[in-house]
Amino acid sequence: MSKPFAAAFATLFLAGMPVMAQTPPAAASRDCQGGIDLARAAEIGREAGVTQLRKVECEDGKWEVEGRDAQGREIEVDIDPRDGRVLKTDRD
């Protein structure tokens, strides 16, 4: 790969990163409108044991926070979008 081509590729790739980072996940579904937004759902998930956050999405009328716990196990926390109550915590 030539240096000019590599530089152009790196510039285009890095220029797109902030846009990707600022684009919210398609989780802001009408099903999860209420008192709890995506950021608060992620915070509640962390409080419930998610240490390495992988995904926050609205699924079946509830927030699902997925990631890993302190022991490295997969964890999913389901959260009520109206009041932030933890509905269920699953660890694999």
Score class of each variant (00 low, 15 high):
Asp31Cys: 05
Thr11Val: 14
Thr23Tyr: 09
Thr89Tyr: 06
Pro4Asn: 11
Gly84Glu: 03
Asp31Trp: 07
Ala15Ser: 14
Lys88Pro: 04
Trp63Val: 05
Gly61His: 04
Arg40Asp: 03
Met17Asn: 07
Lys88Met: 02
Ala70Asp: 15
Gln22Thr: 09
Asp90Gly: 04
Val65Cys: 09
Val65Lys: 00
Phe9Gly: 12
Lys3Pro: 03
Ala39Ser: 12
Glu43Met: 08
Met17Ser: 09
Thr51Pro: 12
Ala7Ile: 15
Gln71Glu: 15
Gly45Lys: 02
Thr11Gly: 05
Met20Pro: 00
Ala6Thr: 14
Asp37Ala: 09
Leu87His: 00
Glu47Asn: 09
Ala8Leu: 11
Val77Cys: 01
Val77Ser: 00
Glu47Pro: 01
Val56Asn: 02
Ala8Phe: 13
Pro18Tyr: 03
Leu53His: 09
Arg40Gln: 14
Val86Met: 04
Glu76Met: 04
Ala27Met: 09
Gly61Pro: 07
Gly61Lys: 12
Met20Gly: 11
Ala70Gly: 03
Val19Glu: 09
Met17Arg: 12
Ser29Glu: 08
Leu53Val: 04
Lys55Ser: 15
Val50Thr: 04
Leu12Thr: 02
Gln22Pro: 00
Ile36Thr: 08
Val19Phe: 14
Cys32Pro: 02
Ala39Trp: 07
Ile79Lys: 05
Arg40Ala: 13
Met1Phe: 11
Gly49Asp: 00
Pro4Trp: 12
Ile79Tyr: 05
Ala7Ser: 10
Glu64Asn: 05
Gly35Gln: 08
Gly45Ser: 05
Gly61Asp: 03
Ser2Phe: 04
Glu64Lys: 10
Asp90Lys: 11
Glu57Tyr: 08
Gly34Val: 10
Val56Gly: 03
Ser29Asn: 11
Lys62Gly: 01
Trp63Cys: 06
Ala27Asn: 07
Val86Pro: 06
Arg30Asp: 15
Gly67His: 04
Ile36Asp: 06
Leu87Ala: 10
Pro81Thr: 04
Gln22Ala: 13
Val56Trp: 01
Ala28Gln: 15
Cys58Thr: 01
Glu59Tyr: 13
Ala8Ile: 14
Ala8Val: 10
Gly34Leu: 02
Thr23Phe: 12
Arg30Gly: 15
Met17Cys: 06
Gln22Cys: 08
Phe9Thr: 11
Ala15Glu: 08
Gly16Tyr: 04
Pro81Leu: 13
Ala15Cys: 09
Ile75Glu: 00
Glu47Gln: 13
Pro24Lys: 09
Phe9Lys: 02
Gly67Phe: 03
